[in-house]
Design a binder for these strands. Structure first.
Length: 708
DNA sequence: CTAGGGTTAG
């Protein structure tokens, strides 16, 4: 066949040597026998070389120079191969190009990486005396939407009015889309209201505009309005409506929307199913999400991601990792969204080994540890206790954004490295990176953990004055914590009184915590009354108060508080510690005897205690006395979950291996001093993450300098 | 022969 034996060298000569390139004149002859073949080749065309061969064929065979071929050729050159120059030079060979040819090029450019080109090309078209038609306008508007350029978009809008095209549904819908993308939902709504014929796309575009601009409630409103008309939503509409639902987190609404899908027999394709799974998870109905997910005949990576991320957001980290395991068993390839979700779960559980595995996987796949992935890695390493590794990833990132800095600052703060956190903050302003509200939470926590009161005050002030950020309730909480912890109790109280927002349980809780550290019984009692009003079911308040009594040696009152807790049938959150060994997570509760190695663990605990006594350790019995209701008096303290985890770690690893422990509550003061002793006597580095921060125990002291 | 609306992420 002619095409196969075509000599590319000869073709190149034709292209480059002739002064005027061979012109192409489009015809409307559809009878060429080669036509279907050439169309097919264009559709499959993947390389420039192949495209040039096809080009040559078109030049040689007049009958192939049809509008359809030209269009396909242009879109192949523009969108598949992304060669704007080549397409343009091809266009210049067309003798007397008509509007159709112009449209084809404009469309090609609008879909390319450089949509601006299509607007420029449109200018050329106007200069040649052509007027846009109902095809030209949507292409141009798509380019404007892509570029988020409202100004150009408005220009096209007026052009379409001038040319009498706004009454075309396509033109109007793309106009709506353009306005929505540029954030002007009002203009989209106006176009919608003014039109006399609205199709499903009009409704969908309006709904999507509201969702994307942060008005999911409004989006649902529009959808409900639509459901009163004769129009029936299809899958594409539903996916958007479902995402609005996810955002609202309203489970009742979720179920209503799901019934709409069933009643109207909307076809459940993969998109709709994924959106349903995502919606149920975001609304907290994990069971329904799992049922749907398990019943899906086919899943893609988004299905898996929706499950993993949704579970992570619901705080079901272990489940999220289990889903990841079955994803791997299923042979599905994770993408970077998957990895972000997995890293997030690792960070929350504190499972360093799996986190490291993900890092290695990222490297192996040649994915750069940048952007989302880089930030997730920084966060994971920081929350898993490897602050140096976190810093390493951070330093290696090519593009650091606010999130990167914020994660790193919060990480350093958690590890008690206040000064380094503040240094990083100055680096941020040096490189011109604007901190956000979350950054300031990190900064204030850093100051608080290290006791940098003056600096903290300054940052809090700068936040609104220099950075124009409005402090939120969390920031006030940080400040109360900072002042109270450092002993400025009355200033902290004063601070609360002057707050422009109503103080919440966290703010009062911070002050109550300060009362415990500084033995302020009366103030503690007053705060407790307030806290019981705000959140009567919270056990932490009572525990803290009884500890305040205990440290003032008011044992009777301490016991009374404990009794009150029992009478209120409050469930104390059981202390729970995790330790990861060889990729396995071992979980211990207080007094746990369920571990297969229980015998050895308790034997080790005895050994630890006797060796510590030899070293001069005396138990802080006060916390013990309270927890003990019945028999196990002297043992109660020894069986706090972190000690079980440490004992297990000691017998299961070779000497010198650091132990990493994650605890759900805060470390009690007795366990804190025991762990210090262990780190010295057994020569182990022990890294404990508690509810608030990290403690690095080494050689008999802790990185928190007993300030926590 | 050309056209518009779709799911997951700090």
């Amino acid at each position: 066949m002619v095409i196969r034996s075509f000599n590319i060298q000869k073709f190149e000569r034709v292209m480059t040597s002739s002064l005027s390139p061979p012109a192409i004149t489009p015809s409307y002859d559809f009878n060429s026998p080669q036509l279907p073949f050439i169309l097919h080749r264009l559709e499959c065309c993947k390389s420039m070389e192949e495209l040039k061969q096809i080009h040559a064929c078109i030049i040689k065979a007049r009958p192939l120079q049809t509008q359809l071929v030209l269009d396909k050729f242009l879109s192949c050159a523009l969108s598949t191969l992304g060669s704007l120059d080549y397409a343009q030079s091809f266009f210049s060979q067309i003798r007397n190009p008509n509007l159709y040819a112009y449209n084809a090029v404009i469309r090609g450019f609008s879909r390319s990486k450089n949509p601006m080109q299509s607007l420029l090309f449109y200018g050329e078209m106007l200069e040649k005396g052509f007027c846009p038609d109902n095809f030209t306008i949507p292409f141009l508007l798509k380019a404007c939407a892509e570029l988020r350029t409202l100004r150009e978009g408005e220009g096209i809008h007026s052009q379409s009015i001038k040319n009498g095209l706004v009454w075309d549904v396509y033109v109007r819908n793309t106009l709506m889309r353009m306005y929505a993308v540029c954030g002007v939902t009002g203009a989209a709504q106006k176009l919608f209201d003014e039109s006399c014929h609205r199709d499903l796309v009009s409704w969908t575009t309006l709904i999507q505009g509201y969702v994307e601009n942060g008005f999911p409630g409004q989006a649902i409103q529009v959808f409900l309005e639509m459901s009163m008309t004769k129009l029936k939503a299809d899958g594409k509409t539903m996916v958007i409506v479902l995402s609005a639902c996810s955002e609202l987190g309203d489970l009742d609404l979720c179920r209503k929307i799901h019934s709409y899908i069933q009643d109207n027999k909307v076809y459940l394709d993969l998109f709709v199913e994924n959106a349903l799974v995502d919606m149920y998870l975001k609304c907290g109905d994990i069971d329904s999400a799992c049922r749907l997910f398990n019943s899906m005949p086919k899943k893609n990576v988004v299905s898996w991601n929706s499950m993993i991320l949704g579970l992570t957001q619901q705080g079901e980290f272990k489940e999220a990792l289990l889903v990841f395991r079955s994803m791997q068993r299923d042979g599905a390839e994770p993408d970077d969204v998957t990895l972000v979700g997995v890293l997030n779960s690792c960070a929350n559980l504190g499972v360093l080994e799996l986190g490291k595995w993900v890092h290695a996987y990222v490297d192996r796949k040649g994915i750069r540890a940048d952007g989302f992935i880089g930030n997730a890695l920084v966060d994971m390493y920081a929350k898993c206790g490897s602050i140096d590794q976190a810093f390493g990833v951070f330093k290696n990132m090519q593009h650091r954004d606010v999130y990167s800095y914020t994660s790193m600052i919060a990480g350093l703060a958690m590890h008690g490295e206040g000064e380094r956190a503040l240094d990083l903050f100055s680096e941020m302003s040096r490189v011109g990176m604007k901190p956000d509200e979350v950054t300031f939470i990190g900064i204030l926590t850093a100051c608080s953990h290290v006791g940098l009161v003056e600096e903290g005050r300054q940052y809090f002030e700068d936040m609104s004055r220099v950075y124009k950020l409005k402090p939120q309730i969390e920031h006030y909480g940080c400040m109360v914590d900072l002042l109270g912890r450092a002993g400025f109790i009355s200033e902290a109280e004063e601070f609360i009184r002057k707050m422009p927002i109503e103080p919440d349980a966290f703010v009062w809780g911070a002050l109550l915590g300060a009362c415990r550290i500084h033995g302020k019984v009366e103030l503690g009692e007053r705060i407790m009354k307030k806290l019981v009003e705000i959140e009567p079911e919270k056990d932490g308040t009572f525990v803290l108060m009884s500890n305040i009594y205990a440290s003032a040696n008011r044992w009777r009152d301490a016991v009374k508080v404990r009794k009150a807790m029992k009478e209120r049938k409050m469930k104390k959150i059981p202390g729970c510690s995790l330790i990861e060994l060889n990729g396995m997570v071992h979980e211990f509760r207080k007094g746990d005897k369920s571990h297969p190695k229980t015998k050895e663990i308790y034997k080790m605990l005895d050994e630890i205690m006797s060796r510590l006594r030899q070293e001069g350790y005396v138990a802080h019995t006060m916390s013990a006395l309270l927890d003990v209701a019945e028999e196990e008096k002297e043992h109660a303290l020894c069986h706090h979950s972190e000690r079980l985890a440490i004992a297990f770690g000691l017998i299961s690893t070779s000497p010198g291996t650091p132990l990493r422990i994650v605890k759900n509550l805060r470390v009690c003061s007795d366990c804190h001093s025991v762990t210090k002793f262990i780190s010295k006597v057994f020569r182990r580095e022990i890294i404990v993450r508690d509810r608030n921060r990290f403690h690095h125990f080494r050689g008999g002291s802790c990185s928190c300098k007993d300030f926590w």
